[in-house]
Amino acid sequence: MSGWSTSDIPDQTGRRVVITGANSGLGAETAKALAAAGAEVVLAVRTTAKAEPVAAEIGPKASVRRLDLADLASVRDFAEGFDGADVLINNAGVMAVPLARTADGFEMQIGTNHLGHFALTALLLPKITDRVVTLSSEVHQIGNLDLDDLNWEKRKYGRWRAYGDSKLANLMFGKELAARLGSSGSTVQSLVAHPGYAATELQGRSGNWTDRFAKLANRLPIAQSAAGGALPTLYAATSPDASSGGFYGPTEFFGMHGAPGPSRYHKRADDTVKRERLWTLSESLTSTTFGV
């Protein structure tokens, strides 16, 4: 693979990065690469025991803290003990799972992938000095948020549509945050990334026939490693060429794999009226507010 790689990560010595869901897959590879470049990394995970081996592999630059994005009380506990960082990476997520509810009654995918990260970012933003990177997906293309039924209380549940909605919400949030930070004169940037198709533990948890398809696809040339899938996140988090409001992903094979760069996205993400409505609704549901 040619183009931008981990060898292009600027020196991260003296910098601190918080990464949600860093116990495996993309998050773990992101943490390893940043620590190798000199950063201190905080692995923010639901089950700390699962992250301890990753922290042990990284060494003294890594620490582990508990964070359950499906429980706003846990998000608030994490934020209360937070003493600042240069970068927040909203990486954790669930994909195409059967209908379930978070501790606060949200549909599990929108609750974990979007609302949990929305609340976390709101609470941590005053102590972030450089960037917020939020993970979306190419599956955002099938998302079409119903803001009158965000939590799937009225509609027949569709696990893939719900996942697409959550990833569209991630993209819209990242772009709206960038716009608001820019308008407020803040120097903090908000960027969005997607991994293309990376073979990780995220696949295979749908509980239906798509699990078998995912396991097969993970063995095909369209899939890249978790380390390859982490490159767009690393680019967004560290590259001086990455711009606030930008969406970055693999640049080869229709955005499935390859070196990171600017990525196409659905025009729905540029609907500023809907972005503002999603923002207001998210603040209401999570009982959080932003200073931008």
Results as ranks from 00 to 15, higher is better:
L43I: 01
A56E: 15
E80A: 15
G14V: 12
K167C: 09
R16K: 14
D149Q: 13
P60C: 02
F247M: 00
L234V: 04
Q12H: 07
V45Q: 02
V45I: 08
S244F: 05
W160K: 06
K267S: 15
G143W: 08
E138C: 02
V139K: 06
M108C: 02
A79H: 00
A37N: 00
D83A: 15
V17W: 02
H194E: 07
T238K: 03
G116Q: 08
S74E: 11
A237L: 01
P10C: 08
V41H: 00
A236F: 03
E107S: 06
N144K: 15
G3W: 00
A226W: 09
P232W: 04
D165F: 00
K274A: 08
R180M: 09
P60H: 08
V18M: 08
S63Q: 11
E107C: 00
R46E: 03
M172C: 13
G84N: 10
L171D: 03
E138M: 14
S2P: 09
R76D: 01
L145M: 10
N170S: 14
G182C: 01
P126D: 09
N91A: 11
N144V: 01
P221V: 04
L120G: 07
R65A: 13
F173V: 07
D211V: 00
F78Y: 13
G111H: 00
A73N: 14
V94G: 04
T289R: 15
R76Q: 10
V17F: 09
V45M: 02
L191V: 07
R219T: 15
L99Y: 12
H117C: 04
A242M: 04
G158T: 02
A259P: 02
L278A: 07
A100N: 12
T121D: 07
R277H: 13
D241W: 09
S137I: 03
P260H: 06
G21S: 12
A198P: 03
V133M: 00
V139L: 13
L216A: 13
F254K: 13
L123S: 02
T286E: 10
L125F: 04
A37H: 04
E80Y: 00
I222T: 12
L150R: 03
L88R: 03
W160F: 14
G143P: 04
T272P: 07
Y265T: 10
L67R: 07
D149C: 09
V18A: 05
A85E: 02
K154C: 02
S190Q: 05
V94T: 07
A230W: 06
P240L: 12
A55S: 10
Q12V: 09
T288H: 04
A22Q: 08
S244P: 05
D68A: 09
P221L: 10
E252S: 12
S63C: 02
Q109R: 06
R264T: 14
E252A: 14
F213W: 12
M108A: 15
T20C: 02
L34V: 05
R180T: 01
I110N: 01
T129I: 11
S184K: 13
N208C: 13
S243W: 08
F213Q: 04
L120H: 00
S225L: 11
G158S: 15
G27T: 05
